[in-house]
Amino acid sequence: MLALALLLGASGVASADARKDAQSQAAFGISVAQRGLWQEAVFRWERAAEIDPTYAAAYNNLGIAFEQLGKFEQAGKAYEKALELEPQNLSIQQNYDLFKEINDRAKRNSGS
């Protein structure tokens, strides 16, 4: 039992480190996105998602960036992954709902 507790503790520390690294990538992505540098922001948020694949914020931000870049399929996948990780997160849900409206319109335009 003690071994299990130590193991859980160690993995908790490791994932806390991963989350910290991912957060610093995400923060940098936010600062560049706010200056309109969306490609660089995508790179940072993809990096954050690689470092910590359970970090919903990274996928949410990727969804926004792909939307801004007109890559609707990738945006949809990113938002869905974010919601899978944090289904109760209202900010992600709100972003996804707004995205779906735009995506429906784009689909109507393309006739698909």
């Binding site: 507790a5 859980l8 503790g9 908790g12 957060q23 359970t54």
Partner: peptide, 15 residues
């Protein structure tokens, strides 16, 4: 202790 460790880890991850 097991529960508190797990909770601590979870809290540090969620932040």
């Amino acid at each position: 202790p097991v529960a508190s460790l797990a909770l601590g880890a979870a809290l540090s991850v969620v932040g």
